[in-house]
């Protein structure tokens, strides 16, 4: 099995994603350079966090037209798993892999913190190793994380159970205080209709080691890799 971590010139969580896969799970990983229109036979593609091409126009707006993204979209259309984290989530939305968009945080400020997420479903390739309703502690670090979609799309997402993670408080309630960016319905992560593309603002690759605060992201990578290996 092989995991591809896409590397745009402004990616800055590419190394963290690579370490999560290689150091913690012992799986092979390669970097996929943005100028190369190929996923190089990878089974799983990770779109990591960062600032792709500087994100000056809109986060992800330019990245979506990069050569590597045409290959990533083709990989996803074939049913290949894509884990899109933070800037990766923004790019996936711009590229049409996921519905909706990520807007400037309601506070207008960048927010870096460790938040609580409630796992909404455990019957997916990304969340099988979590317990139903489990509350995770996962870091966020973004300036544009306010998930939004038109009313129809939102209704559809909720009806189809495609919200994977929601920001919650210590009691598991999706309160506005627990919502770091003003996302609609406290949405932290969603999947596409086929269930093979997960986009999320929080950083599971930063939650791999209790010495750094949390290891709650490990099960996400384990779920995904176990599914692919099966």
């Amino acid at each position: 099995m092989k995991v591809g971590v896409v590397r745009f010139p402004g990616s800055n969580c590419d190394g963290d994603a690579w370490h999560a896969v290689v150091d913690h799970l012992g799986v092979d990983a390669v970097y996929l350079w943005h100028k190369t229109a190929s996923t190089e036979g990878c089974d799983v593609v990770i779109l990591p966090g960062g600032f792709s091409y500087g994100d000056y126009l809109r986060p992800g707006a330019i990245a979506r037209f990069s050569p590597v993204m045409s290959a990533v979209v083709a990989h996803a259309r074939r049913g290949g798993p894509v884990l899109a984290i933070c800037n990766g989530f923004q790019i996936a939305c711009e590229a049409g892999l996921l519905p909706g968009a990520l807007l400037r945080n309601a506070s207008l400020r960048f927010v870096c913190d460790t938040v609580r997420l409630a796992v909404q479903r455990t019957d997916t390739m990304f969340t099988a190793r979590y317990a139903p309703g489990q509350i995770l502690r996962i870091p966020v670090a973004h300036g544009d994380g306010r998930y939004t979609a038109d009313a129809d799309t939102l209704t559809q997402l909720e009806a189809e159970g495609r919200v994977m993670f929601r920001y919650v408080d210590a009691n598991g309630e999706p309160t506005s205080q627990a919502n770091p960016n003003g996302a609609l319905n406290n949405i932290a992560g969603i999947v596409n209709a086929e269930g093979n593309v997960l986009g999320m603002m929080p950083h599971p690759e930063r939650a791999m080691d209790v010495r750094l605060g949390s290891a709650d992201g490990v099960a996400l990578f384990e779920s995904l890799l176990a599914k692919v290996a099966a």
């Binding site: 126009l57 707006a61 037209f65 909706g100 807007l103 939004t148």
Partner: peptide
């Protein structure tokens, strides 16, 4: 195509 995001 690029300059505006039709969603927002």
């Amino acid at each position: 195509k690029l300059l505006a995001n039709p969603v927002t």
